[in-house]
């Protein structure tokens, strides 16, 4: 069974990815980004990342500053955060101790990957649009976030 992610997970993911919590929640409904990340990446890495995030929120830091702190060169959670960003953006994930073993855990993870929204397109291989849509420009960028 999939565990409902804590709302902090969405808030933090929103800072890292630039997408709204609403978009992330919809993606999570279709593909379990939270649980599968924890499973595949392994260890307590996600817990540590969330802990780091929550501490900064409690300290009253602004979202942009929290993002910078998480991803700073010396940050102990930067690597985990980037792995999570890759997962959200591309649906690709590798275990923490074997970064070359990248994989796409399910078709839905690929189909919900954010990069397609970022480039105002649909996942290659998954169109829900109608014949001829490609002849006119897509909806504005902000609509996809």
């Amino acid at each position: 069974m999939t565990i409902e992610p804590p709302s902090d997970f969405f808030d933090m993911s929103s800072i890292l990815t630039g997408f709204t919590v609403r978009t992330l929640r919809l993606a999570q409904q279709d593909a379990d980004f939270y649980g599968v990340f924890d499973d595949v990446y392994g260890g307590a890495w996600l817990k540590d990342l969330m802990g780091f995030y929550v501490a900064r929120v409690q300290a009253g830091s602004a979202p942009e500053d929290i993002g910078k702190a998480i991803l700073a060169d010396a940050s102990p959670v930067a690597e985990t955060a980037r792995a999570l960003m890759v997962f959200w953006y591309l649906g690709q994930i590798a275990p923490h101790d074997d970064s070359r073993d990248l994989r796409i855990p399910s078709a839905n993870h690929y189909a919900q990957a954010l990069v397609w929204r970022a480039i105002q397109a649909h996942p290659t291989g998954v169109s829900t649009l109608r014949f001829g849509y490609w002849a006119i420009p897509p909806a504005p960028f902000d609509d996809y976030l």
Partner: peptide
């Protein structure tokens, strides 16, 4: 990059 800047640059 991260956040909206990442999405914008990819776009």
């Amino acid at each position: 990059l991260f956040g909206k800047a990442l999405a914008e640059r990819l776009n």
